[in-house]
Nucleic acid binder design. Structure first.
Lengths: 331, 331
DNA sequence: CTGTTAGCGCTTTCAC
DNA sequence: GTGAAAGCGCTAACAG
């Protein structure tokens, strides 16, 4: 097996102690420039790469943030991942990603292994099926921020989007486009954002004396199509479909097309997220959008602040990121 | 600052030595069941979480694989990421992801920090702008596998897709659909897969006595649109557009639509990848597809095999993953 | 069956 | 200015 170059090797080569080498590489000002230069030079020549495991062991910090998301294939999560990783790197931190596939026990395992890996902090985009993972985090006193969804009953730092406002905004927009019967295909309402989006939808409808039509589907791939196909007879009576998120919207678009609908002529379609801001897509959904770069960066800022403060963080922070209307070609 | 529970704490609590605790938690069979049970129980009660930094320091293995990709927002990479992470976890390994944004110096930094983090191996989806990163890897004798693109001049383990065959396959398919003038919007041909896809395209055209029309674009977001818009006058003479990858295809679709084209009536569109296998998309491109789950898993298998063999791996492996025709609704 | 000891590579007192 | 020594938490060789 290949042996890495260590401080000891450099020390031997330079005829000085390990301490001196360590200091030289850290550019300590107790050393004369000449010594530092010489050591840096030989370290370079020997192909020295610092062993950060040893540094972590010694200092207690890994400069790594665990980031737990559901599924990278969902562009929502992959965009969050991208912006998080990029921003963390600019702050000289690593992102350690893990995915849960929306399986609660997986989430618990992920958090446990993050703790085991001694990450300095954790960003969790929770499944919100149970509180096991969050309980563990609270118990271990590890700095963490919940992103996207939050537990009403738990005291945690969190960053969410203005879901009620978004629901209100997009529903009002559909009404202004002459939709009267708006079908809302929502996610399960144990998810805080689903509950809040529905509340906004209800508020807008109420203001116009309109009736709500809500179904709660799973976000799993295929479930939207599975719902729509047997529903086709009733579908025609609606003017618009609002779905919980863009990936459900893509699936709805795809399914409606195969059912012979023209969008938006025969049926308007709207959603939440605005993934067209992050990736180029064949079509663009009209939606209540959020800025994922901003989400990622503000969540990271909040977390790093928690990490820097040694104290057990007295007051909790809750950031709410606004939602705004993004017109696509489906309304 | 919160102090984690260590083996020492458990040992004190149980009135035994650290070694015994370590052995009990590893379920060593030199210990009587009663002792093991008692220790495991108290460890649990105390909320013990193993410090894997210390274990890594001691054993030299981090059970972590560095995975370097371009940009998570591209579903190609995020799918690879998903399947890689999932498969590695099933093998009890971690995936440490980093992204390069297609910037060569970023790639070098990423590899360097992977080495510094003492990852056990590296999966690199190389930019192929230069060989700096790969040179470093070779020099440090760290097990690694190149995925998707490969350097002809360097001896490395690699896994690529059958790009020449894919190019041939999809071009032949377009010809069978009566396309005679096929515009190929390829990526830069310093990328091995671009070069090979073109070769397949040429072979198919040659067999039918047809003329090639190739332009080399950047894969960056927006570049396909930027090319197509000023090209609109000439565009009408073509029967089909073949693009290097699906995300360029989405952009082409989106642009053609806004230019008033109906697809496939006015223009056929085909590409490479088959991302509709991984994520649900509003439309499905006809393409020469690859199985990313298979790619990820075979790359991981190859890498883990390298890691398990202490020897400097005598014979290099090159895996070629096949491409197959996937009909969408764009031809 | 269990404990003592050494050491992974690094940083950080504390001496000289 | 520089070095010796201790120790982060864990494992493994070696005793007993």
């Amino acid at each position: 097996m290949f042996k890495n170059v260590t401080l000891k090797d450099i020390a031997k080569e330079c005829g000085c102690s390990v301490t001196t080498v360590s200091r030289a590489l850290k550019d300590s000002d107790t050393l004369p420039q000449a010594t530092k230069d010489k050591i840096n030079q030989t370290a370079n020549a020997m192909g020295y790469i610092p062993n950060s495991v040893a540094t972590s062991m010694r200092t207690g910090s890994t400069r790594t943030i665990g980031v737990c998301v559901q599924d990278f294939r969902n562009p929502f999560y992959s965009s969050i991942a991208k912006y998080t990783e990029q921003y963390l790197r600019s702050k000289n931190y690593f992102a350690l990603f893990a995915t849960t596939n929306e399986e609660p026990e997986q989430e618990y395992n992920v958090i446990k292994s993050f703790l085991s890996k001694n990450v300095d902090g954790i960003l969790l985009l929770p499944i919100q099926h149970d509180t096991q993972a969050v309980d563990l985090l609270l118990e271990q006193k590890k700095p963490f921020v919940l992103v996207g969804r939050q537990f009403e009953q738990l005291n945690t730092n969190s960053l969410v989007t203005a879901d009620e406002e978004g629901g209100y905004l997009i529903t009002n927009y559909l009404i202004s486009k002459n939709a009267r019967k708006i079908l809302f295909l929502n996610a399960e309402e144990s998810i805080s954002s689903a509950k809040n989006r529905r509340a906004g939808y209800m508020r807008a409808l109420e203001e116009h004396g309109l009736e709500p039509f809500v179904f709660n589907l799973s976000m799993e791939y295929g479930k939207t199509r599975e719902f729509l196909i047997p529903f086709s007879a009733e579908l025609a009576q609606y003017d618009a479909i609002l779905v919980f998120c863009d990936i459900m919207g893509f699936e709805a678009y795809n399914t409606l097309l195969s059912m012979g609908y023209s969008i938006p002529q025969d049926m308007m379609l709207a959603s939440f997220d605005g993934l067209q801001q992050d990736i180029i897509l064949p079509i663009e959904l009209t939606c209540a959008a959020t800025d994922r770069k901003k989400m990622a960066e503000q969540a990271v800022d909040m977390l790093l602040e928690l990490i820097d403060h040694e104290q057990p963080s007295p007051n909790l922070q809750h950031i709410v990121i606004d939602q705004y209307l993004l017109e696509g070609n489906t309304t």
